[in-house]
């Protein structure tokens, strides 16, 4: 008998006009008794990870690195070519992993986000071994560069940009 009361209540609340179907549809589809906010959307940012091969040889800088060129002077390399460009939304609570050259992986987690900046956790792995684990606070649209992994006689530069 105790089990019939909730059932009757659910049936009573569940009957409605078509006008009731709308913004609350998602909520009505949720399991009963689960308090979920109507705007429970996970924050996300767009992340771009470029894979640049820096090597010695003929002086060349990929046109995509035009803004970065003057900041590369302190490196001993003079040939910079973009090998790949990864772009993906990074959702809070879900790790986004990029496979890059040399059997390495870069995983990015969105920790926090506000109008001005985001906090990202960036980890780099090689053959399952963690090389770096860092948390950075990135101003909207800013870029930072993870550099140094060896690759084919040179190194890899990984300019990472977060925008939203």
């Amino acid at each position: 008998m105790n089990g019939l009361l909730p059932l009757l209540a659910a049936l009573t609340l569940g009957v409605g006009t078509p006008a009731d179907v709308g913004p609350t549809t998602m909520i009505s589809q949720q399991p009963k008794g689960n308090k979920v906010k109507a705007k429970a959307k996970a924050p996300a940012v767009n992340v771009q990870l470029m894979v640049v091969h820096a090597s010695e040889g003929e002086a060349y800088v990929d046109p995509q690195l035009e803004r970065l060129e003057k900041h590369l002077q302190f490196l001993r390399y003079d040939n910079y070519r973009v090998l790949d460009v990864h772009r993906s939304p990074v959702v809070k609570g879900k790790t986004t992993t990029f496979a890059i050259e040399g059997g390495r992986k870069v995983s990015i987690d969105l920790l926090e986000k506000n109008k001005e900046e985001v906090r990202l956790r960036v980890q780099m792995f090689k053959d399952g071994k963690k090389l770096v684990d860092t948390t950075v606070r990135v101003k909207r649209g800013s870029t930072f560069v993870v550099a140094g992994p060896k690759h084919k006689g040179g190194i890899l530069l990984l300019p990472i940009t977060a925008n939203y």
């Binding site: 429970a40 959307k41 996970a42 803004r67 993906s88 925008n163």
Partner: peptide, 18 residues
């Protein structure tokens, strides 16, 4: 926060200029 749906960023995913 509950992960219910992805909040898509306002800007489309396109090439970012540094």
């Amino acid at each position: 926060e509950t992960v219910a749906a992805v909040e898509e960023p306002s800007s489309p995913i396109e090439a970012f200029v540094i």
